[in-house]
Design a protein around this nucleic acid. Structure first.
Lengths: 353, 353
DNA sequence: TGATCTTGATGTAACGTTTCAGGCGTGATT
DNA sequence: AATCACGCCTGAAACGTTACATCAAGATCA
């Protein structure tokens, strides 16, 4: 406020440089730097002088220059397909929280599923702007990610959809046990014809949940019926279509395990269209426990993924990586937990006699 | 891949500098710079030589150095209270999209409603890291924002919750006309006792929607009933409580206009708890048209705000600001649109007689 | 007393760009 | 033939830090 140039309309609010502060305080730039960063030994006298100038003129260090000099930017890239899905935004929130605690900031890069775009973003992330990255559900091939790793770029993958390079740290949820738990819940309610509306085949999330689904069925001696396993795409529309197909089977399922909440919501819509009541006629279980699960009617029984915690964990790993510390657990799998709500109930007693 | 040092495990993947490229191509750094940035006149021979080296060795310019030299970082700060609400994340998506088109990236700063936090974030945004910012629903006082403006920092406010400095560009939706449209819809269905569950009093969004609500009522000669205007906080829990109170009135409303979708969803929950059917016994209208509005049962009639467009518009304004262009419209108000779904119906014929 | 350590402060070389002020041929103009 | 304009290019100075190598002076010790 004191200096005229601060208020010039031209935009470049010409702030003090470290050199000017040094001159004003009668010390060297090196001393100012050490005072600012609280490093090493500085005489009380010098410190006081510097602090006084800083306070009166309002100096604050230029992060760009610091980045260039120090080789670290304090910026972490975060890529994700889209922001406006609660699945992603909750992870993002967790990651942001953790980054803030480490005094770093995140550069957000929504890829909108355009692979090429993500590539150039990674290119850009690597070259000077960021110290590392958190890649949420990246659509790169394993080779691309390996190459990135070879180049010495530091990053952590959250919820990889293909098995990545062994050496790249990953964070994900316990797909298999979560799926098992969901199916066991349905089994305990007496259901035996339990359908699975899966995500795209080949994705880790899909395959592992499928494994958990089959394993749970196997424990009670139910043979998996291929017609009850319908592949879909993690969208509500996909869930709706898959469920319509299932309900047209001659021997339709009494319960549906949808591989995420969107699919489950689609399933509920399909049921409603056919006048099938949930949970009386059909039980539905989702996966994720996004916000939507708690507001649909009936509220959705689902497998909770600790999404925010996944974001935080990813940052924790990345920070260790950036500090060149050894990471003990390269692949972290966080526990899931079944949240029972209103969309599941005991199987209806067969009307037949 | 060629150079050994690229693959060193130490992390600093020592890439080529512009100087090395210059030496390899037998030209000066200035020439390389001009080739890279496609500026001015460069002989075809020199350009070819440089391009060859770049292609073979994989040079790409260090953004940090460029930022220091050029004074622009290509980074734009985006602050918002929280990421994981569809309201915010959709705006964010729009902004991200627009920034990408301008070859800029966004530094995301969730404030989590901690004012102090936002202040230090702004501090940090200002000092060297970003060229400007988009502030979504900032919790700063008008004075603070004015001061920021005085300092020459460039920013745009999306959906200010207090009237900001005249000179600061803002983007928001047409609260008043949107609210009027919602209420007119209810009026046209025969409703006369229409309650408003508002956001916090004093916020622009609240006051303007309230004005629209009252204006619409006035056009048909309905006097506003203070008992039908309940202040709340834009949360589903708040909507639930406010609606419970309304339903206990001796003369309860036949329709509720909730000032956002969360409140509306809370209202629906309150109705369900009392066994009141929507829309048969009670009509509900929301505001925003977030994703949730389309998946609740019944689906929610609501006023659509063009959230993504607001994000894009904010970036458009900011870009002009950064380029020192004159901005013709400093305060942009985007049109809203009523989306009629299942939660509203003609008022029930009074049973009394 | 002279040699050896501390302690606190300094000067300055990076860091990798961009850009400005020139410089050097070459061809056109007088 | 001398001058000028022009196209292309170069060298070097920013940009604002951090960090390394010194250095001065006072304390400690043989």
């Amino acid at each position: 406020m004191e200096s005229l140039d601060d208020a010039t309309g031209n935009g470049r609010s010409s702030r003090l440089t470290i050199r000017e502060v040094a001159d004003l305080a009668g010390v060297s730039t090196a001393t100012v730097s050490r005072v600012i960063n609280g490093r090493a030994e500085v005489s009380e006298k010098a410190r006081k002088a510097v602090m006084r100038v800083v306070r009166e003129h309002g100096y604050s260090t230029n992060r760009t220059a610091r980045a260039l000099s120090g080789g670290r930017t304090g910026l972490v890239g975060v890529t994700l397909p889209v922001v406006h899905h609660s699945y992603f935004s909750v992870i993002l929130d967790g990651a942001g929280e953790a980054l803030y605690d480490h005094d770093m900031r995140m550069v957000l890069c929504p890829t909108h599923h355009e692979h090429e775009r993500e590539v150039t973003l990674l290119e850009r992330l690597m070259h000077g702007t960021t110290d590392g990255a958190v890649l949420i559900l990246p659509e790169e091939s394993g080779e691309e990610l390996s190459a990135l790793h070879e180049h010495g770029y530091r990053f952590v993958i959250v919820d990889p959809y293909q098995p990545p390079d062994e050496r790249v740290p990953t964070v994900s949820a316990a797909h298999t046990s979560g799926a098992s738990e969901a199916v066991e819940h349905l089994l305990s309610l007496g259901h035996r014809r339990i359908a699975a509306v899966t995500g795209p085949r080949g994705w880790i999330a899909t395959e592992e949940r499928l494994r958990g689904y089959r394993a749970a069925l196997a424990t009670v001696g139910v043979m998996p019926d291929p017609r009850l396993e319908v592949e879909s795409d993690f969208s509500d529309r996909g869930g709706l279509e898959a469920t319509q197909a299932l309900l047209e089977l001659p021997d339709p399922p009494t319960a549906i395990f949808a591989f995420n909440d969107m699919l489950a919501i689609g399933a509920m819509q399909a049921a409603r269209r056919r006048g099938i009541r949930i949970p009386e006629d059909l039980s539905v279980v989702g996966f994720d426990d996004t916000f939507e699960a708690s507001i649909v009617t009936p509220t959705l029984t689902t497998v909770r993924q600790p999404l925010a915690e996944m974001g935080r964990m990813a940052v924790a790993l990345l920070v260790r990586l950036l500090e060149n510390q050894r990471i003990e657990a390269l692949h972290v799998e966080l526990a899931t937990k079944l949240v029972v709500r209103e969309s599941t109930a005991a199987v209806a007693v067969p009307v037949a006699g």
